[in-house]
Amino acid sequence: MALRAEHEIYRRRFSRNLGVGVVLGAFVLLSFLLTVEKVTHGDPMHAIQGKGAVNPDGTPIVPQPLVKDSN
């Protein structure tokens, strides 16, 4: 048996701190997952530069020839 029994006030405080910690962790995870989902599926945010680049509708981007400066 412990020399001093833990007071209820510490148990309640611990439950609150643990709860807040879990909720904040879950919120960070949810925000991360939502961001990943928005970037990959939800919004048409495809890269439009570089090799294999596509338009937002999925059609490939045809590279345009560079126009030389007449000067």
Binding site: I9, R12, R13, S15, R16, V20
Partner: peptide, 8 residues
Amino acid sequence: AEPGFSDF
């Protein structure tokens, strides 16, 4: 009193 998580 000191509120616990369940009180919230």
